[in-house]
Amino acid sequence: MFVLSSLLLAPKALAQHSQTSIFAPQSTPAKSILDLSIFVLSITGIIFVVVFTLLVYSISKFRAKPANANSEPAQVYGSNQIEMAWTIIPILIVVVLFLATARVIHAIQDAPEPAGAVEVTAIGHQYWWEFRYPKLGIVTANELHIPVSDPIHPTPTFLQLLSADTDHSFWIPVLAGKTDLIPNHPNRMWMDPHRTGIFLGQCAQYCGVQHAKMLLRVSVDSPQDFAAWVRGQQQPAVQDQSVMTGRQVFEHTACINCHTVSGTPADGRFGPDLTHLMSRTTIAAGAAENTPQNLRLWIDDPDAMKHGSLMPAMKLSDADVDAVASYMETLR
């Protein structure tokens, strides 16, 4: 019963503690959604107070009392004037709400793409994210890097959303509302983060067994950091002779059917691109920190870390797992 008051108050208090609260917008779409939300919350809040008061009043005022126990109250069948009133007022409220809503729909969905925009193609896979920057020639996974957008020289990021298998949904609550990734149905969304930092989210559309561990990280970088990151990602993979054994194991098992390491025979596209694996802070779509131990556990038996993951355990010997893990650790 107190849901509306808690709706209005509690999340504000919790916003500081949660990195994924819709009440802490960091970009224009999320901000205009929040403004509309506050407007809608206020109107529904007023309706709630009015009707709640009417209900409580009529329940307490017209309760049966011993004084009137034996008499039936006046039998009233209705009133056309009253019916008109409580039909017309809601119609007016709906018109106002609709106009406010339509304005924000148009502002977000039909926003033109400025010249300085960064273009990213996000492809949903069971259960990880592929990010391709067609203009920059970069392919990466799970952790999206985008530049901060200065209001004077905006550099928003426009995402083309695709899916390789089932439906997914891209949701970073502080940056924008969610948009689905649907096979054979390209979608578009955009965001222009106002400050740097790491922003979290996850797949919001049920996509299969490990839907829960299809996490998202967006790193919003300063222009300099973003340029440095782009340069790093554009390099081919580091070739380190000291981990040749691991590389050979990697290239002689089925790993290369699914994974790409640029400049080597590995050119699979079913799994994440590993060319710059060590530039990422997490593995398995955010299921674990990218540490040597976790990497080794993951290569040895993905199912133990993320049950239902589509990456098979290759049944490698301990020595081979160590060798492959060492090879991975050189892919900076």
Partner: peptide, 12 residues
């Protein structure tokens, strides 16, 4: 019903 609000609320 306010569609942009729903872009945040939907599927949550």
């Amino acid at each position: 019903a306010a569609a942009p609000f729903d872009w945040q609320l939907s599927l949550s």
